[in-house]
Structure formats: structure tokens, C-alpha cells
Amino acid sequence: MVPLSWYLVLAALLFSIGIYGVLARANAIGILMALELMLNGVILNIVAFWRYRGPTQVSGQMFAIIVFAVAAAEAAVGLALIISIYRRRGTVVAEDVSLLKW
């Protein structure tokens, strides 16, 4: 049996890689991808805890499914925003979108 801590460390690693991506990527879509990595780290954590600490309850998986739904909504709206910004400003670099109004 794989120890629980291995899963937790993997999830933490995935989350941290995601944080690096969100902070360091210049392209907004790249940032969104890194965000997906972070969300995956979180879900992995939840599922590992469900399996090792409450396998008889469904709440762990339920939580993960709700996070999935939120992730889908986030990706759809985020990409729609990026496409809309690209159409108006011709750029997807996050730093170039610095005006609050134009």
C-alpha cells in the first residue's frame, strides 16, 4: 500500500508548480493552464484524503466533483475573457492589459 504522505507530497508539488506557472507565465492562457494544475493538485489532495480517511463516506468524492464543476466553469469563462480581450486589444500577454478603461 502506498503511504498517504506520498500522495500529499505529490499534490503539494503539483500545486507549487501551478503557483510558479501562474506567477511566471506572461501569456494569459499559460496562466490559465497553470491554474488548472493547481486545481488538480487540490482535487488530488481531496481524493487522497477521502481514500485514506473516510472511504465509507461519499463526501470526499462529492467535494471533488463540485470542484470539477467549478473548474469547468472557470475554464469556460476565463477563456471567453481572454478571447474577448484578444479581440479588442490584439494581445494575450497579461502585462499588456494594464488599462482599467479605454
Binding site: L8, V9, A12, F15, S16, Y20, L23, A24, R25, N27
Partner: peptide, 26 residues
């Protein structure tokens, strides 16, 4: 460029987050 000029700072921060999280979780 595909990454911002301050990327080493981001790397340090990510490493710190990972260290803290991993330490706590283990």
C-alpha cells in the same frame, strides 16, 4: 518572452510554498 522578468522570485515563492505544504502534510 514567455515568462515575466521576475520569474526567479516566482520560483523561490513556489519552492517555499512547496516546502511549507510538504512539511506540514508529512
Amino acid at each position: 518572452p514567455q515568462r515575466i522578468p521576475q520569474w526567479p522570485l516566482a520560483a523561490v515563492l513556489a519552492l517555499l510554498v512547496f516546502g511549507g505544504l510538504a512539511y506540514l502534510l508529512v
